[in-house]
């Protein structure tokens, strides 16, 4: 009999990591420097890969491991390096001043997160009380929040475009 991991623990780890990703996203809103912004993106991507790996482990779905590996390799490794090299070549050290000042944008991000939860709430079916449904509900909320904040960052400053594209892709994958 193979070792069957406790799915409850898995859910816990996944929600924790999802929360971390969200925190990093808000930290990215507060960042001025472009290099640290890229680094935050790298850590975030690494976490996303890790989430995929955790899902693969606890659901024993080995094909997701591939997705996880690809995520970590491409998004946490290759893409940030490329971006950093690009930044170095262009020679910008500082992000252009955002349109809305930082404290206010952080506050707006908080509001957007709340909106994400409100939207996710409407998808919530109380009759589905399984842990899995709760997990889907939470990650959905985080996904929506990330998407909204990403969009907001994109509006607020132009250089963050690439980041946002990737988030949308990835979170669609996780949400499904």
């Amino acid at each position: 009999m193979p070792f069957v991991p406790n799915p409850e623990l898995g859910n816990r780890i996944i929600t924790l990591m999802a929360a971390l990703v969200l925190v990093l996203q808000i930290a990215a809103v507060g960042q001025r420097g472009i290099v640290s912004s890229i680094r935050i993106f790298a850590v975030q991507s690494f976490l996303l890969g890790a989430i995929a790996a955790v899902i693969a482990y606890f659901n024993q779905a080995s094909h997701i491991y591939i997705a996880a590996l690809l995520t970590v390799f491409l998004k946490a490794g290759l893409l940030p390096r490329l971006l950093e090299r690009l930044v170095e070549r262009i020679g910008i050290r500082r992000e252009i001043e955002p349109l809305i000042n930082v404290p206010l944008s952080i506050l707006i991000s908080g509001g957007l997160t709340l909106l994400g939860y409100v939207v996710a709430e409407s998808f919530y079916h109380p009759e589905e009380t399984s842990a899995r449904a709760a997990l889907g509900h939470n990650t959905l909320a985080v996904a929506i929040a990330l998407f909204l904040i990403g969009f907001f960052v994109m509006v607020n400053r132009r250089k963050a475009l690439t980041q946002v594209r990737d988030f949308i892709d990835l979170w669609n994958a996780i949400g499904g």
Binding site: L22, V23, I26, G30, V102, P103, T113, Y117, N138
Partner: peptide, 22 residues
């Protein structure tokens, strides 16, 4: 410094939101 504390405020708010959602 207010930016840093604003991050703390939002973290607190997220903590609160996630107490009854997570």
């Amino acid at each position: 410094v207010p930016e840093l504390l604003m991050v703390a405020f939002i973290l607190g708010a997220l903590a609160l939101i996630s107490t009854f959602l997570f």
